[in-house]
Amino acid sequence: MDLKQLRAFIAIADLRSFSAAAAHTGLSQPSLSRLLKQLETDMGVDLVDRYHRPLHLTEAGAFFYDKIGTILTEIDTVTSMTQRLSAPSAVLNIGFVPSVLYGLLPEIIARLKQSSPDIEVTLKDISSYQQMDALKSGDIDIGFGRFAHQVPWIQQILLRHERYVVALPKAHPLANTNNQRLIDLANNRLILYHQTHLPISTAVTKSKSTSTKQTVPSESITEPLLHLFAQYGISPFTTTTVSDLQVALGLVAAGEGITLVPASLKTVRTEQISYQNLAHENVTSPIYLHTLKDFVHPKIPDLLTAIYHVYERRGITYRQQKFM
């Protein structure tokens, strides 16, 4: 059994066609068929039922496909990491979620370039969840996200907690009321925009619109904004789910509801939106920095230095950390 045989099998299993798999791998059909046959002979098991069109996997083949695909992905990841460790790129590829871009990220990058004039930086807008795969593949070297992740390949540090503020239409009765409580906002339509949910195993299915209030344990809710309300035993009267943060703020500006956003977004659409502080000090959105466990890009310490320099200049409380 070797990698060529395994990759041939995966291609056939993915595409359910020898001709399509041959085109995908760049091998001839006879070569592909021979590799599969060698694999089956080595294992003493038929993996593909060749008498159906499209091709079907045997029961053993389906089991093998499910398990071996994960192993090949791990091999590809290790290979990529080894190559990057041997010859690190001069470019620092940084992934970020959009809400971070409205905060201190531009200032941090400016400070990084000022202190390290030779550094080349690329920025990529990518969700917290997608950053995990992007780190493994090498598309990014480090990522700014809003969620904790339990991924064996990844290490992360908590940079700080950012307070949430409530975004309301300018005409809203509470538009000029500061230090608001979540209970006073519960009768409004809450606009949800997070594409990544909290890593809680037990989830409660929430509809886009609910007409009755219920007290739901916060431990059972994975949508971040609903989780914040549930921590206080509150369920909003009605909710609407949209694709991203900008759409959510667009609906607020149009008077279609309210939402909670990190305080760094208080400068967005200020002509139509009023941003007010919340009375709850623990209603916050964390900012995490994550990278690979076994390969830390040589420019990442410079990035951390720039982050902490900006925090000190801004008077932001933080606990200095570093990647291992």
Score class of each variant (00 low, 15 high):
residue 102 Y to C: 06
residue 26 G to W: 03
residue 58 T to G: 12
residue 128 S to F: 04
residue 154 I to T: 00
residue 313 R to T: 13
residue 43 M to F: 08
residue 241 T to N: 09
residue 143 G to A: 14
residue 216 V to K: 03
residue 165 V to P: 06
residue 71 I to P: 09
residue 36 L to S: 03
residue 128 S to W: 00
residue 30 P to L: 14
residue 249 L to E: 07
residue 281 E to I: 05
residue 244 D to P: 08
residue 254 A to V: 03
residue 176 N to D: 15
residue 280 H to Q: 10
residue 119 I to N: 00
residue 154 I to R: 06
residue 263 A to G: 04
residue 64 F to R: 10
residue 164 Y to Q: 00
residue 216 V to A: 08
residue 135 L to W: 06
residue 19 S to P: 05
residue 324 M to N: 08
residue 311 Y to A: 09
residue 100 V to A: 13
residue 273 I to Y: 04
residue 138 G to F: 03
residue 71 I to N: 04
residue 124 K to W: 09
residue 172 H to G: 14
residue 230 A to Y: 01
residue 65 Y to K: 07
residue 180 Q to V: 10
residue 180 Q to E: 15
residue 243 S to Y: 02
residue 274 S to A: 13
residue 171 A to I: 01
residue 100 V to G: 10
residue 204 V to I: 11
residue 66 D to K: 13
residue 103 G to V: 00
residue 47 L to G: 04
residue 176 N to C: 14
residue 210 T to S: 14
residue 149 H to L: 12
residue 23 A to R: 09
residue 182 L to I: 05
residue 27 L to N: 02
residue 245 L to Y: 09
residue 68 I to P: 04
residue 122 T to D: 10
residue 322 K to D: 13
residue 2 D to R: 03
residue 254 A to L: 11
residue 210 T to N: 15
residue 266 K to C: 14
residue 193 Y to G: 01
residue 78 V to L: 15
residue 267 T to H: 15
residue 283 V to K: 03
residue 71 I to D: 11
residue 291 T to F: 08
residue 287 I to W: 05
residue 160 R to H: 10
residue 137 S to V: 02
residue 159 L to R: 00
residue 54 P to S: 11
residue 131 Q to N: 03
residue 238 T to K: 14
residue 259 T to G: 12
residue 271 E to F: 09
residue 152 P to Q: 02
residue 182 L to P: 02
residue 151 V to R: 03
residue 257 G to N: 01
residue 57 L to A: 11
residue 157 I to P: 07
residue 28 S to I: 07
residue 34 R to L: 12
residue 65 Y to E: 12
residue 57 L to E: 03
residue 193 Y to A: 09
residue 58 T to E: 10
residue 85 L to I: 11
residue 115 S to P: 04
residue 125 D to R: 10
residue 306 A to G: 07
residue 172 H to W: 02
residue 157 I to W: 06
residue 6 L to N: 05
